[in-house]
Amino acid sequence: MQFLTYLINGISLGSVYALIALGYTMVYGIAKMLNFAHGDVIMIGSYVVFFAFGSFGLNPIVSVLLSMVVCTILGITIERVAYRPLRGAPSLAVLITAIGVSYLLQQVAQLLWKSDPKSFKSVVGLQPVSMFGGQLVISGETIVTIAACIVIMIALTLFINHTSTGHAMLAVSEDRGAAQLMGVNVNATISLTFAIGSALAAVAGALLCSSYPTLQPTTGAMPGIKAFVAAVFGGIGSIPGAFIGGILLGVIENLSKAYISTQLSDAIVFMVLIVVLLVKPTGLLGKKINVKV
């Protein structure tokens, strides 16, 4: 029963990673860049929820929606100001810029809200569910996190595979030039990708801080890195890959915390990544790129 509790909590943590990993993987797939500032967008989103819900007492759903709007605007702005001028530049330049944006966001947050940790009030009002005569207790946060992740995954998959905008995104991710020849506005598609990724980051931030209620300017950094690992783990550029990678990472992390060592859990997570990449360099669901001439 203990194992089941760890497993379910792992899936819940993994759901958060999956939501963040979606942002990494979609941006990588479509803009061909690693947006290392993505984790810090989560942190900004969490602060928005913290103030809207915690300080001003807005409705929790309204607070999360507000946070999604703020993060969407932030994501689009970052892309427009920092990354778009570098389109066509070497990928290393873009990567360094992304790291710069990440630090910028953290420092700005520190200036605005100080570095002392804030205690985040959970946005989930659901009561814990108790099963098997109280042997298995699942918190409301866990249930909502897993449910949100599943709903978002399904919605996103339907959007990508069954709308013309979704197809345009797939086309841009495969061949930007050819997509342009079809009349796809590549810049608009990339902006949309950042918008979706950032809105999901806002949701992930609210859920993450509801389960792990300390909020400070560096809150987004570690989950950001781990979600990046999850995206690579599942096969960067693949949406189902981000989902599977995220869940697996959360489960591995939680189980190693429970059964091996709390201190070593992160090391174990990264070790698993290294092993996976040694065996399958493209990640679990990553595609081998076949070029046929």
Binding site: H167, A171, N290
Partner: peptide, 16 residues
Amino acid sequence: FSGLTVQQNLQMGAYT
């Protein structure tokens, strides 16, 4: 677009 089906490729052609 090698990952899209023939039908989806043609649909992309009609994007505009």
